[in-house]
Amino acid sequence: MLERTPRFPHQPPMRVMWVRWLTLAGPVCYLAGATIDALELGPKQGGFGSLLVIIALTAVLFGLYRTGVARIFQEHLQYLDEAERLIRAQVLARAYQVFTLVIVVGVIGTDIFLDLTRKFEWSVQFGSGIYTLVAGAIIMFALTLPTGLLAWKLPAEEPTED
């Protein structure tokens, strides 16, 4: 009989509620940091916004990978049971839909914005750092979206062993 890997192999599980909040707090901090940097609002140019971005990334990665929630995506399929496989398939499909929608809306929105403002280069308005921030946001979004959706799909209180 194939032995299942434990849900939380190294440490006690982080509560699903915490993961849910982290999945919201991460992107919000990233957006805030990026905006502060782009609009040069921080006390020291490029410093405060970047710090917020780093905090956001650390919080999200720590939160998502400390919990067993991420295991459903990281583990090889043969080590998951049927319920976990179903959850993985459903959440990945939904994440793909959401990601596609966000990207399409983002591209169309950007196009309209550029047309309205008659600015053909973002770097003219926001400096060249805007490309890095946008690329970082897209990568972070793509990496954390499935786990974030999963955290919102799983029951907040997981069953105990007893």
Partner: peptide
Amino acid sequence: NVNFQTIGYLERGDY
């Protein structure tokens, strides 16, 4: 041969 959480989900009618 399933995870104990799955038994919990079955009992609660979540799965």
